[in-house]
């Protein structure tokens, strides 16, 4: 499953990472090398194997339904690049 430049651009776009044409060109052989290498996994017969879900046997715990958090707006906004009137602010979104 070799990937081309268009695919690289599509992945970059899905990843929300801006790349130049030159960077896209550079990524093509690099990603192909890595992906070509991981493809050896295809050799393994896994037809009777379940994918791993928990590394160490463990049970998902259920939390009690009580309010234990919140009312910390200052902490939430403390690192915001732009915060106004208690909101985070982002470039205007047109829906």
């Amino acid at each position: 499953m070799s990937i081309d430049k268009e695919t690289v651009k599509k992945i970059a776009s899905l990843s929300r990472i801006a790349i130049t044409e030159a960077e896209a060109d550079a990524f093509v052989p690099e990603l192909n090398q890595i992906l070509g290498w991981v493809e050896q996994l295809g050799e393994v017969d896994t037809s009777k194997v379940e994918p791993m879900t928990a590394v160490i046997p463990n049970q998902l715990r259920l939390r009690e339904d009580v309010v234990t958090d919140g009312e910390i707006r200052d902490k939430i906004l403390a690192n915001a690049p732009i915060a106004e009137h208690g909101f985070f602010a982002v470039p205007k979104v047109i829906e």
């Binding site: 499953m1 996994l41 896994t46 791993m52």
Partner: peptide, 14 residues
Amino acid sequence: AYYTQAQKVRTLIA
């Protein structure tokens, strides 16, 4: 092909 297979191989490794 990739992720599910890798997690299956992970089971085999364990």
